[in-house]
Design a protein around this nucleic acid. Structure first.
Length: 464
RNA sequence: GGUGGAGUGGCCGAGAGGCGAGGCUCGGGACUGCAAAUCCCGCUACACGGGUUCAAAUCCCGUCUCCACCUCCA
């Protein structure tokens, strides 16, 4: 039995682990900042997706009805630059990379959000929000087509990042002709020739970076919601500005803020300036999606994950051992029903202590293998159930149809028949102690990419 | 300059006053015709210098190194 009331999560706003209390009993409303679709996703982007997917699955498994919003920002400066660079329309850039992200999420079994709103589909809501902000004096339109939020007028600002307005470095690049304060940020940007634009009461233009999240969170989750998430680097300015404009409009906004740490290479943050080698689709040429997900989920979501192909391969090896145990277990005890162990639940409730839960999985695996040797099928089934239950929360259940068991097709039975014939020959050779012949058959099978294991129940094979 | 984070064994990675997570690698053993798989044993670490304490990887003071954000960022 999962004690839903005991879930504790780290809140960036208070810098402490807090008891999670949903606004509405039995429901959780979550907004996670999704991609700005201006380039193909790298493993750092997808880690965020995996981390919040684990949280979402855990909330759902704990009995909550979860409304999970992850937006697509499909209009911004970088997309416009990319359009010029790639010589295609900006909207073609946006959909191209939106699909690349969708493919990556799918490959790693990141569940689709409840709703996945696009910025360009919510211009009306953005204009309404700006209208409210201008009417109540929080924002101003200086007449050049821009609309700014006046940060000095805010009752509080920068509370999430714990900074003082005057400590911030001067913006530098901003055109301050129209700003009342250099730190005021643009809700809306006036149209430049050739740029896409939408009509507003203050002139034609396009959204600034932060406005879309406030508008869409409000549209789908209301004035106040439970959890807002995103990458650590969004704390400032993106999330501060979301808070600023939302609260200036009178919304309570998010109750708890969660931020995942990034993936690093050589100790440094993986950035978009890196080459292509760490794009999700490139990495997936070396390991399966389930293995990449296992690796990305294996560090605590608030810890940096130092990416290396060596660590990735090792992690994949470790995962295959667990997978192999589950498959053997299924062959012997039949269908394995996932079960959530109390110990696992306690760890997940402690700010998603995934790394410790991996230790737990290792223990179950060892106990399960020992039970296997002892022929204790009840014990095998119990351990397998706990493992499968934990893996389902981590999104790494090898029996999840999402990962599409490639070898569960009709081909498997055909291959099974062929391998069985060869194995019979090998067994005959072994019986007559003709080990040279037996090993020769095994070598041929191995060369086909199939592993042979001799078990007390006879040889079994698996595709590498 | 401001704000935040990190330094743990060959590698990855938890923990946050006591009795040494876990995985991978490596070495040894059991099992096996040999393998494979599996199990058992071993390798005993917390950047540095002080301090507090019966007890410090964990708390305090100082030092070093690294990283991130400060209006492009997952």
């Amino acid at each position: 039995m999962t004690a839903v009331n005991s879930l504790k999560l780290y809140d960036t706003a208070t810098r402490s682990v807090r008891e999670f209390q949903p606004l509405k009993k039995g429901h959780v409303s979550m907004y996670v900042c999704g991609a700005t679709v201006q380039a193909a996703p790298h493993v750092g982007h997808i880690r965020s997706g995996v981390n919040f997917d684990i949280l979402r699955r855990w909330l759902a498994a704990s009995g909550f009805n979860v409304t999970f919003i992850r937006n697509v920002t499909d209009i911004d400066d970088k997309i416009l630059h990319k359009a010029v660079h790639e010589e295609i329309p900006w909207w073609a850039v946006a959909i191209k990379y939106e699909r690349a992200f969708a493919d990556a999420y799918d490959a790693l079994n990141v569940l689709p959000p409840t709703y996945e709103p696009r910025a360009t589909g919510h211009i009306t809501q953005m204009i309404e929000l700006m209208q409210t902000l201008i009417e109540n004096g929080s924002a101003y339109a200086p007449g050049n087509g821009d609309v700014y939020l006046e940060v000095r007028k805010l009752k509080s600002y920068l509370t999430l990042s714990n900074q003082k307005l005057d400590d911030l470095l001067p913006a530098g690049d901003a055109d301050e002709t129209y700003k009342r304060d250099p730190r005021d940020f643009a809700l809306w940007k006036a149209a430049k020739p050739g740029d896409p634009s939408w009509p507003t009461p203050w002139g034609d233009g396009r959204p600034g970076w932060h406005l879309e999240c406030s508008a869409m969170a409000h549209a789908y989750l209301g004035t106040e919601f439970d959890i807002h998430g995103g990458g650590l680097d969004l704390i400032f300015p993106h999330h501060e500005n979301e808070i600023a404009q939302s609260q200036a409009a009178g919304y309570g906004f998010a109750n708890l803020w969660m931020h995942n740490a990034w993936v690093t290479t050589s100790g440094e943050k993986m950035s978009k300036s890196l080459g292509n080698s760490l794009l999700v689709m490139e990495v997936l040429k070396r390991v399966r999606g389930i293995e990449l997900r296992w690796y990305l989920g294996s560090a605590h979501y608030r810890s940096m994950l130092e990416f290396s192909f060596e660590a990735l391969e090792e992690s994949a090896v470790a995962f295959r051992r667990i997978e192999s145990f589950l498959k053997r277990a299924k062959e012997t005890v039949g269908e394995i029903s996932p079960a959530i162990a109390d110990e696992f639940a306690a760890l997940m409730n402690d700010d998603l202590a995934v790394p410790q839960s991996l230790a737990l999985i290792s223990e179950w695996q060892r106990a399960g293998n020992t039970a296997f040797t002892a022929g204790n099928t009840a014990e095998v089934a119990k351990n397998a159930s706990f493992i499968r239950g934990a893996l389902s929360i981590l999104g790494c259940d090898p029996f999840d149809p999402h990962y599409g068991e490639a070898n569960s097709s009709d081909l498997t039975s055909a291959v099974d028949g062929l391998i069985a014939a060869l194995l019979e020959q090998r067994e005959a050779a072994r019986v007559r102690k003709d080990f040279a012949a037996a090993d020769s058959i095994r070598d041929r099978i191995t060369a086909m990419g199939i592993s042979i294991e001799d078990t007390p129940q006879g040889p079994r094979w698996s595709i590498n």
